[in-house]
Amino acid sequence: MDDRFAMDNRLDGQALDAALHLLDRQVIDEDGLLVCKVDDLEISFYDFGSPPAVTRILTGPAALVPRMSSRTGHLLRKRWISLGVQYADRDVPLAISLDHVVHLGSGVHLDVSREGLLDRQPPPDDGVRIRRLGELLGMKVESNHPELRGKVLDVRLEPVEGRYLLRHFVVGPGRPGSLLGYDRGDFNGPWLVAVVVERLHRHIRLASCANVSEADIDWDAGVVHLREDTTVDDVSFD
């Protein structure tokens, strides 16, 4: 293990959780200098064939501010735009391609220098629609499956060469402490905290979502419709 890195590379693993392992992490360039935070992630939905995937790291106020505001209304986002109505790209965040990510541990390490790195998020190609993870998190889940209740708490990804495929939704009642990681069986730890958080999150489940298309998600109302063939699993890793 390279001693620049504090822990093993998650990209070598089978799966990672976007909100728990990637979102809000520090981005670090090839010289160990700090670049930005992972303020949000770009999700691409493809019209034909391939499953949806996380494709870019988004950063800057245009990415962070919408995550601060509540899902409906986006009051803060509107205020943010109104502070600079003359800028055409006020609402377009800065982006880093996932190709540059070489190591994902306690931070996100890139293989390029930070100078002049951040540019605006480009418009999508034909047949691709782009959304943000921040929009998806917290959406209500509608499904016939009796165990799937509550909200999208996280998204489980499978890293495949510069794109992280969306494989599962982590679904559960939106209670505090999900980012602490106790609910994914990741670690044990002070007994009191573990007991409380595990109890709060005992209804959490993993729902397959590889065949979810953009049309299954009502972005304005904030509802995800999961199809009949959704499989449900335990949420802990392995």
Partner: peptide
């Protein structure tokens, strides 16, 4: 972790 306190605060408690 090579991460100082406030990195972890944001990461574990979310941006809000």
């Amino acid at each position: 972790s090579k991460r100082p306190t406030f990195d972890l605060v944001r990461e574990r408690l979310g941006p809000r």
